[in-house]
Design a protein around this nucleic acid. Structure first.
Lengths: 252, 252
DNA sequence: GGTTGACCCTGACCCTACGTCAGGGTTGGA
DNA sequence: TCCAACCCTGACGTAGGGTCAGGGTCAACC
């Protein structure tokens, strides 16, 4: 006959675990000896090992209890079931392993690959990392709020960077963030932007592309505040002579 | 800006999970809007997804907290560590899968293969299932109490079944369990057993082999009680004329 | 026969990572 | 105006044990 610790050792569990199984009625309480110690026979070892085999496979104890009192055919069905669950879990863990290796790599985990490629393209063109991060955040919010919009916007953005003049203006805007609002280069930039807008005003597929600007950046940059107000002013003047095209898109 | 449920959805977790992470300080509490609702930016989504990536891989939340504030080199080391743990877990689950398939097959899980082979050999020789189960229990207890004894006993047992006369006697004993204690066949059996014992008395490698009997069986079988007492009596008589060989081995 | 260390007992609280319920306020569309 | 679908806090429940407290037993050694 075995003591509780001997029994526990044969099944590779702690004494506490055995007592827990008694407590919840999963393993029957054995006879006690004269001093009140539990004394186990071989059947207890068999039962305990069967229990642990199932528990190790992730089966909840409550279900194990039911299983051990089930008909053989139910039992077999449950085993098939459990085996399938195990296999699924293994596959899950394998994909988690892949994702873990991507943790170091910034936004790769959060955004679809097309967007990641776009951000990398911006970096390659010389866009400042600060701007790229703002762009990233905008994509994340768009993804959360209106995911079906993303593919079209990606095409539009990429088309923008296919146009050399648009790209030049974008980079100039990016660099102008820290300029003094009285910097003479700003006048030239505003003229160029206005000219570009005038040329593309009807082309809704790229509508307002260089205006895609985070509100937070505007607040922080006097130079940009000047650009925005100047462009808005000129656009209004132009539209006094033409019918207004609806072109207001709130940006997050 | 995102509400809590929108944030939760982008990371594929429940709202409760997000609040839990706030509560334990894993994810910083965001600003509230006028009505007290939490409002999240894109960085929260990035953080939450990173957290879940680690949590899904089985990293405890407390450790994730430490990891996110760690130096890049520590972080990388931890990732390697976590990846190795994942791989170990996958291998574990694979072996659990194998064990699950053996659950239907009786003692295979509980005993070493040599013992299982021995029990199968007994079944093949025609030993009753009741006897085999008693034998199985004896092996389980021996395994728990004195594992290093098992290999030698296996050799002895197998040697016993290599001897046709010993095997015949064993089978006869097995069948005699339910006989009436006055059954005339018992007299013949006792004579044969006594003769065998006399012949093998000095051969310690098989000492008392047919006597290997569970105490519980003896109690339940009047026929066996007669066999035991008769053999004991005869042995004593014989030993009155010869020096006694030490041959007492308590059988669990 | 006294001590020591390894066991055994019950009962109770602690842990993680949330789930769930109660009780109530907010929002947005029909 | 109403309803469903959100949001809030606070509190308790869950599995599968770990750990501690407070005490009894057993076997060996001195």
């Amino acid at each position: 006959m075995l003591t509780i610790s001997q029994l526990a050792a044969t099944a590779n569990v702690t004494v506490r675990t055995v007592r827990h199984y008694h407590h919840i009625g999963l393993l029957p309480e054995p006879e006690r000896d004269a001093s009140g110690y539990r004394r186990y026979g071989a059947q207890a070892a068999v039962d305990l090992i069967r229990i642990r085999t199932l528990a190790d496979a992730g089966v909840p104890l409550a279900r194990i209890d039911a299983l051990l009192h089930a008909q053989p055919d139910e039992f077999d069905a449950a085993l098939t079931d459990i085996d399938a669950a195990l296999q699924r879990k293994i596959e899950q863990l394998t994909t988690y392993r892949r994702r873990i290796t991507e943790l170091a790599g910034g936004e790769r985990l959060v955004l679809p690959p097309e967007v990641v490629a776009l951000l990398d393209r911006m970096r390659g063109l010389g866009v400042s990392e600060r701007r790229v991060l703002l762009e990233r955040d905008a994509w994340i919010l768009m993804q959360a709020l209106d995911p079906h919009l993303v593919p079209r916007r990606i095409r539009e953005k990429n088309a923008g960077f296919d146009d050399p003049e648009a790209t030049r203006l974008y980079l100039a805007c990016d660099q102008s963030v820290d300029w003094d609002p009285d910097d003479p280069r700003l006048d030239q930039l505003i003229d160029d932007l206005d000219a570009w807008e005038t040329r593309h005003e009807r082309d809704s597929s790229q509508a307002g592309y260089p205006k895609l600007v985070s509100a937070r950046v505007c607040e922080a940059s006097p130079a940009w505040q000047r650009i925005i107000s100047a462009l808005t002013h000129r656009a209004e003047q132009r539209h006094r002579h033409r019918p207004a095209a609806p072109n207001n898109r709130p940006d997050s």
